[in-house]
Simulated assay, not measured.
Amino acid sequence: MLEEGIFDIHCHIVPGVDDGAADIEETRKLLEMEYKQGVRNIILTPHFRFQMFETPLEKVQRQFRLAEEAAADISKDLHLYLGCEFHANMEMLSMLREKKVSTMAGSRYVLVEFSHNSEASYIRERLSAMLSGGYRPIVAHIERYESTRTDLDFVEELTEMGAYMQINADSIVGKDGFFTKRYCQKLMKNDLVHFVGSDCHDSSKRISRIGEAYSYVIKKMDTDYAKQLFIRNPQKIIDQKI
């Protein structure tokens, strides 16, 4: 697709640790799908959420190594990094400091998920705590939350605080409905998006459309802006430039 390759910073490809890839065979299919779409760097972000997804980090790391082996079989220029989609809670800082969950590729960036109906005050407080603790929160799929969907000013407030915004590829290309697609367009036109992720979970229903989203952003915005979201900003995570 392009020489430098694009990034996927949000996906569920680590086998057998959450509701994503069930086994290494599914992991391999997803990695092949990503590679064919022009992805060359992937941050794998298995869920951590109390009472739902609490796989110990040691197991996640062990399963991640299996994914790395599968990627090496596909191509030497397919690079994997470990992260986590960390559902917001009141123990976030202590869990990060005690290394019970992964940051994004070992950086200070953390992919943070909220519940659909999380109130603006809770989102603001949790992100503020993360920032005060020295982390750089990336808010996962902000198009899903009532408090951000209905208030662009609130999204702008969060970015001015220092938080980063991520939207899903499916939302960009319209797979999550017209209104979600239009909302994502508004976010991009107001320069309120920093990252795009596939949020893929399997090779049949919740697939990766990251390449399609990249092409769509080029068409609707321009190539430079697409490279900012899909290449340059993600590279800052890997380079740990904050």
Rank of each mutant, 00 (worst) to 15 (best):
E157G: 00
Q166V: 04
Y122A: 11
D170W: 12
G162S: 10
S147R: 02
M221V: 12
A71L: 03
F7D: 04
I142C: 11
G162E: 01
K189G: 00
V101F: 14
S75N: 06
R108S: 10
Q185W: 14
Q240T: 12
S208Q: 03
E34K: 13
F230H: 07
K29Y: 09
S115G: 13
P46I: 03
L2W: 04
L44W: 01
H194L: 04
I237N: 08
T55G: 00
L80T: 04
I13M: 01
L111I: 05
Q166L: 11
K219G: 10
Y35T: 03
F64G: 02
F178M: 09
Q61M: 14
E3P: 06
R28P: 05
S115Y: 09
C84Y: 08
L152T: 07
M104T: 05
G174Y: 07
Y216S: 02
G177F: 09
F50I: 09
Q63R: 13
S128I: 15
I138D: 02
K241M: 12
H87Q: 01
E34W: 13
T223C: 14
V17E: 11
I167W: 01
K227V: 08
T103G: 14
F48K: 04
Y135E: 09
H47F: 13
D176N: 13
V112S: 05
P15S: 11
Q63K: 08
D170M: 10
F154E: 02
V39Y: 12
L229T: 06
S94K: 15
Q228P: 01
I237A: 06
D18Y: 15
V217M: 11
I210Q: 10
K99Y: 01
G38D: 01
A72C: 10
Q63P: 11
Y122F: 15
A72W: 00
Y35K: 03
D19K: 13
T180P: 05
I74K: 02
V39N: 06
E157I: 08
Q37C: 05
K76A: 15
D19L: 14
T55P: 00
K236Y: 08
G197N: 03
I231D: 03
S107V: 09
F230D: 03
D19P: 07
C84R: 06
I218M: 13
P56K: 06
K100L: 11
L78E: 05
F178C: 00
T150R: 13
H194T: 05
M161R: 08
E32I: 13
R232V: 15
N233K: 07
A105H: 00
A140P: 05
D222Y: 09
E212L: 08
D18P: 01
Y214C: 07
I242S: 10
P234G: 07
I218S: 14
R65E: 14
S198C: 13
V193G: 03
I13D: 00
K220N: 14
